[in-house]
């Protein structure tokens, strides 16, 4: 455990203090500030101007949904960029030798790398949470669905991080690592498109279940489903496990 925290702490510190992370965080907040405010104003205009029969739109399903989908979209691209260096650069700069000759196991390396990057992503998640939080004094909404949605964000982010670390473990090239991470992330989303075109009821439901989209949407709607939690945790676990196998394999190749 101590080894995992040592590794995670080192990577967390070096990532969180890197100029790249500061730049990414700044750009994200610029974009969120722009879009969140815009959709908030739009929401306010809509609710005042028109009389809608039926249930009135809620903040959760309009403003927050847009905000959270946007966070997700950004994370698909940003997370691989933040995780790309984790193992690829260690290999390139030969510091990988240090890790492999230190008295630590491959599992500890994989988990340490994952947790370090995950911690940094949590900073971004916290940053994005400021927007709904700042809305609270001016508009009343119920908090629990928002928290459920953020649980979804955190779980999805952990999957992206695990995917990114895995991509980084496969190569020495930082560029290749970021591209692979990106493609893997997109693939997890596009699986649901396969569901639409798949023939046969069985195949359709399988593809639906193993795509991130459906599970993530459930969280945004405010429902916490055990199967969705389990699915996203398993995805994270799977990719951390694959990373562990890749790290371990370097001893045998």
């Amino acid at each position: 455990m101590r080894n995992i925290l040592t590794l995670a702490g080192k990577d967390f510190r070096s990532l969180a203090t890197s100029p790249m992370f500061c730049l990414i965080a700044a750009l994200c907040s610029v974009m969120w500030s722009f879009t969140f405010l815009r959709s908030l104003i739009l929401f306010a205009e809509n609710t005042q101007a028109t009389f809608n029969p039926g249930p009135s739109p809620t903040l959760q399903m309009t403003v927050f949904l847009t905000h959270i989908s946007q966070i997700n979209l950004l994370f698909v691209f940003i997370v691989p960029a933040l995780t790309m260096r984790l193992l690829a650069e260690e290999k390139k700069l030969r510091t990988y030798d240090l890790l492999l000759t230190a008295p630590i196991t491959a599992t500890e390396i994989a988990l340490g790398k994952f947790l370090g990057a995950f911690g940094v992503i949590l900073i971004l998640v916290a940053l994005s949470f400021l927007y709904p939080l700042a809305t609270y004094p001016i508009a009343h909404f119920s908090f629990p669905p928002l928290l459920a949605a953020y649980l979804g964000v955190i779980l999805v982010a952990s999957t992206y991080v695990a995917v990114g670390v895995f991509a980084s473990s496969l190569t020495q090239s930082v560029v290749l690592s970021v591209v692979m991470g990106l493609v893997f992330n997109l693939f997890l989303w596009f699986l649901s498109q396969g569901a639409e075109s798949a023939t046969g009821l069985y195949m359709t439901s399988v593809l639906e279940q193993i795509s991130i989209g459906d599970h993530f949407m459930a969280f945004i709607r405010g429902s916490i489903r055990l199967k969705s939690i389990m699915f996203l945790l398993s995805c994270t676990g799977l990719f951390v496990f694959l990373t562990q196998r890749v790290v371990e394999s370097s001893r045998w190749r």
Binding site: S14, L93, R94, T95, Y96, D97
Partner: peptide, 10 residues
């Protein structure tokens, strides 16, 4: 090792 395994940003 042949190349010292140092982190340049530390």
């Amino acid at each position: 090792p042949e190349t010292p395994p140092v982190y340049l940003d530390m």
